[in-house]
Write a protein that binds this DNA or RNA. Structure first.
Lengths: 94, 94
DNA sequence: TAAACTGGTTTATATTATAAACCAAATAAA
DNA sequence: TTTATTTGGTTTATAATATAAACCAGTTTA
């Protein structure tokens, strides 16, 4: 009846990140932090998890003299997100 | 941008339970267990949490000689579920 | 030159989910 | 009849997770 909900996506912060990334080419750490209203520490940890799962890529560079962390969703991430959303629908339709 | 997701509902098993209860008068423990494909222990714990939050009521009686645990969603539970679903929509629309 | 800020990471802790162990009563099997 | 086994759960121990707090390197500001 109910399908499994990918535990990596079934997390408020990680889901928020993926939700943002799915509709944009790339996003900076600070942008994600602001949009998700998360702390840097928590965001850092959760981004790592998404990255380790292959759902996003993380690129570190510099913007002028400041460190810049840029994230992009991967094809695998898009697929996982879409499947998650599909599976979730069974839970939230009355 | 993203609203808070009620942590009590943002759990696969509890959400599954609420999803079932919202569309039926009442449900027995064994029915919920089967439909959510959960273990009795986990279900027992999660039902308690929903009950303590006032989202469901739990009634213990007997069916013949066997114990019978019956759950119903409360008005508060319905409201919480609906709000959760609403808030969730921001996360899953592309 | 020292204090504060930026853009993070690491680590410790609290919370949560889950499974495993357990229990009482009922039924089935030997 | 005593001894498994099953039913319908609960309790408890452990593993996993989320989160905040502490930290760090470099930069800017006072």
């Amino acid at each position: 009846m109910f399908k499994e909900l990918d535990p990596l996506l079934h997390s408020q912060l990680r889901l928020g990140v993926m939700s943002l990334l799915i509709s944009m080419e790339a996003a900076e750490f600070t942008f994600l932090k602001e949009k998700t209203n998360s702390t840097a520490g928590n965001l850092s940890v959760q981004l790592d998890k998404l990255s380790e799962a292959g759902y996003i890529t993380i690129e570190k560079s510099f913007k002028g003299k400041k460190p810049l962390t840029t994230c992009k969703i991967t094809r695998k991430g898009i697929k996982a997100f879409e499947e998650y959303v599909n599976n979730l629908k069974d839970y939230i339709k009355k």
